[in-house]
């Protein structure tokens, strides 16, 4: 019947509105739920989530060795040409030439933190770091060289 449907509709509407108001009213009275981070003040206690992606870094171990073979998979995977790998050829003791990286250039100003390079890397050489305070006074400072000076590829990584 029309009038019953009408009343039911009004009742349902009022009920759903009250449910919503109940939720916001709960948040209004429970201040411990607040999720705002007062950033510069809580710098020491700031906890970033595990999946937060700040910038691309190359992992180096204590012997200053990394796992990058210079395969350029990350360079190919990058959608906006953030990564530029300059390779060189090392001569192994056996006299064979072996491809290795000379410079891993990373343009932070172009990076969208999409994580595709990390997923593309076959050896797990690069990863996403949690640093996020990237502001500098000059744009050229955003072009980074990821492999540390004097570093070399770890033994056994092909």
């Amino acid at each position: 019947m029309f009038i019953v449907d009408y009343i039911k509709e009004v009742y349902g509407a009022v009920k759903s509105l009250l449910t919503g108001m109940n939720r916001t009213g709960y948040y209004f009275t429970h201040h411990k739920e607040i999720i705002t981070q007062e950033y510069p003040d809580n710098k020491d206690t700031l906890v970033l989530s595990e999946r937060f992606r700040g910038e691309v870094v190359m992992k180096h171990d204590e012997n200053n060795e990394h796992a990058c073979t210079g395969c350029t998979a990350c360079e190919l995977a990058c959608p906006n040409a953030t990564i530029k790998i300059i390779t060189k050829f090392d001569v192994t003791p056996e006299g064979k030439k072996k491809k290795a990286i000379d410079t891993f250039v990373y343009h932070l100003e172009l990076c969208t933190m999409c994580n595709l390079c990390v997923e593309a890397c076959p050896t797990g050489a690069i990863t996403m770091a949690q640093t996020f305070e990237h502001s500098v006074t000059d744009r050229s400072k955003l072009i980074k060289k990821l492999n540390q000076p004097g570093s070399k590829i770890r033994e056994g990584v092909e």
């Binding site: 916001t24 009213g25 948040y27 209004f28 201040h31 739920e33 607040i34 999720i35 705002t36 007062e38």
Partner: peptide, 13 residues
């Protein structure tokens, strides 16, 4: 302030 607390924020402080 009211909007901030209802959206689990702090608002102007």
């Amino acid at each position: 302030k009211v909007s901030a607390y209802m959206q689990i924020r702090l608002g102007p402080n």
